Simulated assay, not measured.
Amino acid sequence: MTKRDSGKRERLVAAAVNLAYRNGFTSTSLADIAKESGVPLGNVYYYFKTRDDIAAAIIDHHRQAFDEFRARMVEVPSAKARLVSFINMTVANAGEVARHGSPSGSLCAELLKSETTGRDAVRPLLADPMGWMAEQFAEMGHGDDAGALALQLQASLQGASLLAQNAGDPDVLTREGARLKMWVNGL
């Protein structure tokens, strides 16, 4: 793939990620992706043969974003600070979350209802961060409870994201984020 081809594919993926987040994956057409990316519709089929290919690219984008976050966290000196950084990352997007929901959570909820599109591939979008959280809780000395604590943190963030979206109020997520940071710091 040439550099020019790579740029088109990146624009298509970015457009697909943004449209699927704003409008939902099932409501996003190939024509929408082409228009948003500035890539001719006929070229979309060169990069993505099926809607499943587009779903896979969106899922891969989200997984790469978490992998990049996890790589940055290696520099953070304590597990507690890493968990707080994860909460801060989520809360930093409270305005968007109040409008469109959790990027990963909304995609998971939508694709898990699908019979074919990305159903199994989407599961790690919430499971991988939870596994990472469990590692942090274990490092903090909560080995026996690490999985349960990770579940509590992920459930609280995803639940607050859904409630913020439902209320159209970013403050819902901001307040829950503050409470979760106090909770983590108190462990």
Rank of each mutant, 00 (worst) to 15 (best):
V97E: 05
R51K: 15
S85M: 10
A160F: 04
A155D: 10
V44S: 14
Y46N: 12
V17N: 02
A155G: 13
Q136P: 01
P124F: 12
A127C: 03
A79T: 03
F137S: 07
A121D: 11
S114T: 04
T116D: 09
L83M: 14
A92Q: 14
I58A: 02
R119F: 04
I87P: 00
I58K: 01
A134C: 03
A81Q: 11
M133I: 03
L107P: 03
E115S: 12
D169K: 04
Q64F: 07
A16H: 08
I59E: 04
S106P: 01
D169W: 03
Y47D: 06
M1S: 13
G159M: 04
H62L: 08
S37K: 07
D120T: 01
M130I: 00
L19C: 12
K35R: 13
D60K: 08
M140H: 07
E110F: 09
F86Q: 08
I33H: 09
E110M: 00
E75R: 11
K49T: 13
A146I: 04
F48Y: 13
T116Q: 07
D32L: 06
V39C: 04
D32K: 05
L187N: 07
V76E: 15
T28H: 04
A94G: 13
T90R: 09
G118H: 03
E135V: 00
A160M: 05
A138C: 06
A167Q: 14
A79H: 05
K181S: 05
M140S: 09
G177C: 09
A98P: 01
G42F: 11
L112G: 00
R22Y: 11
R123N: 02
T26P: 00
A138S: 10
I58W: 03
A57C: 12
R119D: 08
A134Y: 09
E139S: 10
L19P: 02
K35C: 02
N18Q: 15
M182K: 15
P129W: 12
A98I: 01
A79Q: 03
S37V: 11
N93C: 05
R22I: 11
R72P: 01
S27P: 00
G101N: 08
V172A: 05
F86D: 10
L41W: 12
P40V: 14
S114W: 00
S106G: 07
A138I: 02
F25Y: 09
G105L: 03
V91G: 05
L112D: 00
A94N: 14
E176N: 11
D5A: 14
T174F: 12
A57Q: 10
L41I: 12
P77K: 12
R123D: 01
V91Q: 03
V97D: 04
P103V: 10
K80P: 00
D53G: 05
V39Y: 00
L180C: 03
G101P: 01
L125S: 07
L107V: 09
M1N: 06
K49A: 14
M1T: 14
R11A: 15
A167Y: 07
H62N: 09
Y46H: 13
G177F: 09
L19M: 12
T26E: 12
A81Y: 02
